[in-house]
């Protein structure tokens, strides 16, 4: 059997964190079913990444081609669909990232298989069947589903599982130079515009300090930047703030932005509209700071401070700095 595969997504020579989270879960599932755990890499010159993955998987499959240097849905689809059709893994897991959400639904269509997106739980039931859990209606309910056929394609919300621990065994690395028929690659990627630089993506952050319209002015976000920096976190924003042009789109948390699941989430000067909450309600610990005691965000928080953010946030940053010795 070709085993359980984890799609090892990488950007600018760095593997996405979610890959390691999935390798942890994948190990548990593979052991439970007596299968091999594979990591699958697509790109060009993959040796360093294969090396990095080696302590976490039984096998690293490298699919190399100059046509896979830059992400292109068509090219990746050609490579991944023929490789999986040939090997027939029981499951391919990937993070529910921008890239995987573009590629894997197309892969499901190409392989004529099912797919579950934004999984919050994967369990092995008696009889070796996988049970997948995912939110519906923006998280107001969960549904548990199972696949009728394999391979099963599963996209997991980042930060749902803890990262894997490295093992002393090393993976076997198998390299394939893939031939991609250029006529099948209909899409042309004309330009890739990076706007975030080296900043940690909010979906990967351990701590998020999210600001809303209560900040009053884009300048005031520096208060949140300072608090985030003390905590080693990043700043997020509500849609109201993004639409006003105060913060970049990639920092938007919520239904029409990103779904985040940090360990610690500060909701500052934001009301907690349903659309916002849908993007953050799996955060582990939530602190809400709002001067309106009726603000809905308090229903989704563990700790609530009914206060003026302009008084509380600078103090909090200062105290934490002392506390954490920074």
């Amino acid at each position: 059997m070709a085993g359980i595969w984890v799609y090892a997504e990488h950007h600018d020579g760095k593997l996405k964190k979610v890959t390691f989270e999935l390798l942890g879960k994948g190990r548990e599932l593979a052991q439970g079913r007596g299968e091999e755990l594979g990591a699958i890499l697509l790109g060009k010159d993959l040796d360093p990444l294969a090396e990095e993955l080696s302590p976490y998987a039984d096998r690293v499959h490298c699919l190399e081609s100059p046509m896979l240097e830059v992400y292109n849905c068509d090219a990746f689809l050609e490579a991944l669909s023929s490789f999986s059709a040939e090997r027939n893994p029981s499951m391919i897991m990937a993070g529910a990232t921008y890239q995987a959400r573009d590629l894997f639904p197309a892969l499901a269509g190409r392989l004529q298989k099912g797919i579950v997106v934004d999984c919050l739980g994967v369990e092995l039931a008696d009889g070796g069947r996988f049970l997948l859990r995912k939110p519906i209606y923006g998280g107001k309910a969960l549904v548990e589903v199972a696949f009728k056929e394999e391979p099963q394609l599963v996209l997991v919300r980042p930060r749902t599982f803890p990262p894997a621990e490295p093992r002393s065994e090393r993976a076997e690395v198998s390299k394939e130079q893939v031939e991609i028929d250029p006529t099948k690659v209909r899409l042309k990627v004309l330009e890739v515009m990076k706007t975030t630089g080296e900043k940690v993506d909010i979906t990967e952050a351990d701590v998020i300090v999210c600001g809303g319209r209560g900040l009053k002015d884009p300048e005031n976000f520096k208060l949140l930047e300072e608090l985030a920096e003390v905590l080693g976190g990043v700043v997020g924003a509500t849609r109201a703030v993004v639409d006003a042009g105060w913060r970049p789109q990639e920092d938007q948390v919520g239904k029409s932005g990103k779904t985040v699941s940090p360990n610690l989430y500060f909701a500052v000067g934001l009301s907690g509209a349903v659309h916002h909450v849908m993007g953050m309600d799996t955060s582990k610990v939530v602190v809400a700071i709002n001067r309106d005691p009726m603000a809905p965000i308090f229903q989704y928080a563990d700790y609530g401070l009914v206060a003026d953010l302009f008084q509380v946030v600078p103090l909090l940053a200062e105290e934490l700095k002392k506390e954490l010795g920074k």
Binding site: K113, G114, A141, V143, K148, Y300
Partner: peptide, 15 residues
């Protein structure tokens, strides 16, 4: 369908 729905579950409640 490729998926079979087994059951619906109440989301975990924050205290």
């Amino acid at each position: 369908a490729k998926l079979e729905v087994l059951r619906y579950i109440e989301p975990p409640k924050r205290r």
